[in-house]
Structures are given as structure tokens and as C-alpha cells.
Design a protein around this nucleic acid. Structure first.
Lengths: 99, 99
DNA sequence: ATCGTATATCGACGATTAACGATGAATAAC
DNA sequence: GTTATTCATCGTTAATCGTCGATATACGAT
């Protein structure tokens, strides 16, 4: 019984950890995460300016981070303000620490 | 000067972290890592038996983990014995803890 | 020698990724 | 109203990924 429950729990963690890792498996996305860690809140345009990539590419990367739950975007007029989801980052840290 | 040095250090860590994340960005590879964490040493065949994947696929996954430095393989006759590179895993943990 | 076991590699295939420029929708300024 | 700014989305392209079966190589047993 306990084993069965533990196995299910492991299954969810594995998939979730893999998803988070996939999200951070590109240097640009790591940089974005670090940037947001420092800046707390930041509009898309500033992130675009900080990377040697096209705006559309950065937007795609942000989309990936958002999909993984690591960042949140809040629309302000024509701008989008992104911030880190610190709880989600902590979750990632927890997973990795438990490896 | 210090900024320049710090920037270079960040650049290396970002790439390295991304590489490690990419390696663990697939559930099968996370499972292999966990398996090796528990078993300490394990032959390829046993790992193959523990996953619902073809032997060739598992071999490819192991190759990815090896390339990222997370596992080491030691040939013993017709068999290969894999083990976790614990220092490398600790490095990963360190990177993530510092995010 | 032959046969069996183990596994890395190859090639094929479909799916996914990362890059870009173009564009449309939403907002702001005039 | 027009014009400008912002950014998500689209489509294209080439590269990479994940999976498989087949196979060659290395070793072990007979």
C-alpha cells in the first residue's frame, strides 16, 4: 500500500521535475530566470533588450517559462510585465535537493 | 574588473546549468538517475528492464546522461556498468540552490 | 569453431525545438 | 481620426529529439 502510494508520488515528481528541467534546458531561459530573480518585475521589452535574440524568440522563450509555471505575465496596456513565480522556483529547488 | 569576471563566471554557469537541465529534461532520464542513486552501480540491462523502452532507446538516454557528466560507464566484458557521478550531481544541486 | 549474451551505434521516421521576419491586436499619444 | 509602441502569434526553416528495429562488436560458454 505505502509502496504503491509512494510509486505514484514518484511518478508525478519525475514528470514535474522533467518539465521544469526542460524549461531551463536552454541558456536563454536560464538567463531570463536569473534576470527576473534580480529585477523582481520586468516588462517584456527590457528582457528582449537584455538578450541577443529577436523579440519574437524571446516571447516564445517566455511562453515556455510561463507554461512550466516559472514565470507569470501581467498585461499592462500594450505591455506585459513578467515576474518570477518564486513558489514554483522553490519547488524546483526542492525536487533537485531531494535527488 | 570584478563585474567582468563575474559576468564570465555567470556565462559558464548558465551554459552548464542549461546542459544539465537538458539532460534531465526527460522523464526516463530522471528515472535512470534516481535508479542509479539507489543502486549505486548497475549494468545496462537492469536499467533497460526497469523502463518500458527499447534497449537501444535506453542506451541513447544513458549516452545523454553520460555526455552531461551525470553518469559514468565502465565496461565489464560484454556488459557496461553504470554509476552516478555524485560530484556532478552535487554541482547541479549547487547551481539550482543558487538560483 | 559455433552459439548466446550484452550493448553501442546506425538509419529511418515523426515530433519537437529554436531561430527569424511578418503581422495583427491592444493600447497610448497626438 | 492617424500614427506609434508593444508583444503574442503565425509560418517557415533547419536542426534536434525520442523511438524503434537491425546490426556489428566484444565477450562468455560450449
Amino acid at each position: 500500500m505505502e509502496t504503491a502510494v509512494a510509486d505514484r508520488k514518484d511518478t508525478l515528481d519525475v514528470e514535474d521535475l522533467a518539465e521544469l528541467c526542460r524549461a531551463l534546458g536552454h541558456p536563454a531561459r536560464v538567463r531570463i530566470l536569473e534576470f527576473l530573480k534580480k529585477m523582481d518585475k520586468c516588462i517584456c521589452g527590457t528582457i528582449v533588450d537584455s538578450l541577443p535574440l529577436a523579440q519574437s524568440t524571446v516571447s516564445q522563450h517566455l511562453k515556455q517559462l510561463k507554461s512550466a509555471g516559472l514565470v507569470k505575465g501581467e498585461i499592462e496596456g500594450p505591455r506585459t510585465c513578467y515576474c518570477l513565480d518564486r513558489e514554483r522556483l522553490d519547488q524546483f529547488k526542492q525536487y533537485v535537493a531531494n535527488l
